[in-house]
């Protein structure tokens, strides 16, 4: 295959721009990143700067990777991270426009690499159950409805990649926050801190500069783990409940 790549290049605080590369000998069985690896190898050999992009497990679970390809977060496939995207999803001769996640809360570090530590700060503001090591009761002491456990799991599958923010026209992080809130809301272990967790995480989310949700549903459609927007609706409810009931 031959691919025409328009890729975003940007380094330290400078204004970025697109750079075009024409790549030949792309195999259909290559992953998208293996295609970038190959390009980078050539770039280095030709004394050019390789393209920086974030990636690690390449199994679709660590949440490190993520670029926007032709206007779609994580590329054209549904429920797939960029690292699991293979070149057979494209046609010979395609032009691919590759950009980093764009959101004011995610500053660009270099080329396609962005800083997502805002997510960690939101988590820090309450995304945990305060339990000390060693003080836990027996795991079967509190039975949990299977449905509740399954729902908690569905929310917990979030890999924190940031595609929801990247795909949202408002750069809203409601899906990310909603998923975490709901994981704990479903489980008896999270209940004591639940009201303050909801308030604190929403406050932190606003402080980090994420936009508000206008229920367009773009986040759900681009989420590689297909997390439902129901998490946002539930977050609204919990927030309303625990702000008024304070």
């Amino acid at each position: 295959m031959k691919i025409n790549l328009k890729v975003w290049r940007q380094s330290n605080n400078l204004k970025g721009q697109f750079e075009e590369h024409y790549i030949e000998n792309v195999s259909e069985d290559m992953s998208f990143f293996e295609m970038l690896d190959m390009l980078n190898n050539t770039l280095i050999e030709q004394n050019h700067e390789p393209i920086a992009f974030d990636h690690d497990c390449r199994e679709g679970i660590c949440g490190t990777c993520g670029v926007v390809i032709n206007g779609k977060a994580h590329g054209p496939l549904k429920g797939v991270t960029t690292c699991q995207l293979h070149m057979r999803s494209f046609e010979d001769g395609d032009t691919l426009v590759v950009e980093p996640w764009r959101a004011p809360s995610f500053s660009i570090i270099k080329d396609l690499v962005v800083d997502r530590t805002a997510f960690d700060r939101i988590m820090e503001s309450g995304g945990y159950v305060s339990v000390k090591t060693g003080g836990a009761p027996d795991a079967n002491a509190i039975p949990i409805f299977k449905e509740d456990a399954d729902q908690a799991f569905d929310s917990a599958t979030c890999i924190g990649c940031g595609a929801c923010v990247a795909a949202c026209k408002n750069s809203s992080a409601m899906l990310f926050v909603g998923a975490k809130i709901n994981q704990y809301a479903q489980l008896p272990q999270g209940q004591v801190e639940h009201p303050s967790r909801v308030r604190n995480m929403v406050t932190q989310m606003d402080e980090e500069g994420f936009g508000s949700c206008t229920n367009t549903g773009a986040c759900e459609a681009e989420c590689p783990k297909e997390i439902s927007v129901e998490n946002i609706i539930k977050l609204n409810k919990e927030y309303l409940k625990h702000s008024l009931g304070k």
Binding site: K6, W8, N70, P104, S212, A218, A221, E222
Partner: peptide
């Protein structure tokens, strides 16, 4: 107020265009 805030977030959106065929026209 919210639109203005969100507009700020949108300033930096995609040069390559953001395709959101998932969201409805009236929502956008």
């Amino acid at each position: 107020y919210l639109t203005r805030q969100n507009k700020e977030k949108m300033l930096s959106k995609y040069q390559g265009g953001l395709l959101n065929d998932a969201s409805s026209v009236n929502s956008r």
